[in-house]
């Protein structure tokens, strides 16, 4: 079975082609929209429309397959930005209808988890999903990926990027595989007073951002603010993950998403899991960020268990929660 998957939820238009036997991943083609500041959804959508055809062709060529070899078209219908989602969905509907293939709806967040499991070989982890737009701790319980903690406002990646931009550290946000806030924190010495907000199982970052920016404006040494900000933000996430780990009794933790690449964050997680005799898995950057392969792979898992959708019902869902999806292939 071969599935072609399309990712177009935010800044990456990705096309992946996967097979249900080794080597699994046949093609991984991407075009990334690089914004000057934050993502402008309409601009991203325009970029996607311009690059879609070439990315699809590139993937087909990489995999050395034709549409006649493909069994299904997987599409990330959400969560994400409306204009971006619509481009991918329109293309996927067209391909499914023109070549008479099954159309498979995929939840972008579920896809992040599934590709992580494939490449790290973790079996049943507490998943920590950290990216520019998402901060969530999920774990598989009773047929779904249940949310054991999430952000009540902005995402961790958003916090770091916005802070960096506002104080003039960025763009670029990542220098030599290190986030500029991590870099700036290296010369921090003094731990200052900023709010640490864990409410029950959830985290909140907006108050921390405001307080950090205020501290900088008041003349606190930038390195000290960077140090405190990243210590507090990372610790909040580790704490919520620790609670989920203790509660579920699982013995694996998997980090996924762009922010998961931070070595400082990873070190904190290493310390935490050691305490619980659990094992840490980190999804390598290539598959931790948005890509088409994860959509194709999740689509393939779904298709094998009869998941597909009629074109007229294949609506995009900007706020499609991970815990609304039945994970039929694990039940």
């Amino acid at each position: 079975m071969i599935v072609l998957g399309i990712e177009s939820t935010a800044h990456t238009f990705g096309v992946g082609i996967v097979k249900d036997e080794k080597p699994y991943i046949l093609a991984d083609a991407r075009a990334e929209y690089v914004p000057r500041e934050g993502i402008h959804p309409r601009e991203a959508a325009r970029f996607f429309a311009e690059h879609a055809a070439s990315v699809i062709n590139k993937a087909l060529k990489q995999a050395n397959v034709d549409f006649k070899d493909i069994d299904g078209i997987a599409i990330a219908l959400g969560p994400g930005m409306g204009p971006c989602l619509r481009i991918g969905a329109t293309i996927a509907r067209f391909l499914a209808s023109y070549y008479d293939k099954k159309l498979i709806p995929v939840n972008h967040a579920v896809a992040h988890v599934e590709i992580g499991l494939l490449v790290t070989k973790a079996t049943d982890p507490v998943v920590v999903y950290l990216s520019g737009g998402n901060t969530a701790i999920v774990a598989y319980v009773d047929g779904r990926y249940r949310v054991f903690g999430e952000t009540l406002d902005i995402a961790l990646g958003n916090l770091l990027d916005t802070f960096a931009r506002e104080v003039g550290l960025a763009p670029p946000y990542i220098v030599g595989s290190l986030h500029v806030v991590d870099k700036c924190a290296e010369d921090g010495k003094k731990f200052i007073n900023l709010p640490y907000v864990v409410k029950g199982q959830d985290v909140s970052f907006s108050g921390l951002l405001t307080a950090a920016l205020r501290a900088v404006r008041k003349g606190t040494k930038l390195n000290d603010v960077c140090l405190t900000l990243r210590e507090i933000a990372y610790t909040m996430v580790v704490e919520v993950a620790e609670r989920a780990l203790a509660h579920t009794g699982k013995n694996e933790v998997m980090l996924v998403g762009g922010v998961a690449a931070s070595p400082i964050l990873r070190e904190k997680f290493e310390k935490m899991v050691r305490y619980h005799n659990a094992k840490l898995y980190v999804v390598p950057p290539k598959f931790a960020v948005d890509n088409g392969v994860m959509i194709a792979w999740t689509g393939l898992l779904g298709l094998k268990h009869g998941v597909s959708v009629n074109i007229e019902n294949s609506i995009i869902r900007q706020r499609w929660r991970i815990d609304e999806v039945d994970i039929t292939w694990r039940a």
Binding site: R146, R243, R321, E324
Partner: peptide
């Protein structure tokens, strides 16, 4: 309806 697991036992 959200199907979320919140504030489980610690």
């Amino acid at each position: 309806l959200r199907g979320r697991y919140i504030a489980e036992r610690r």
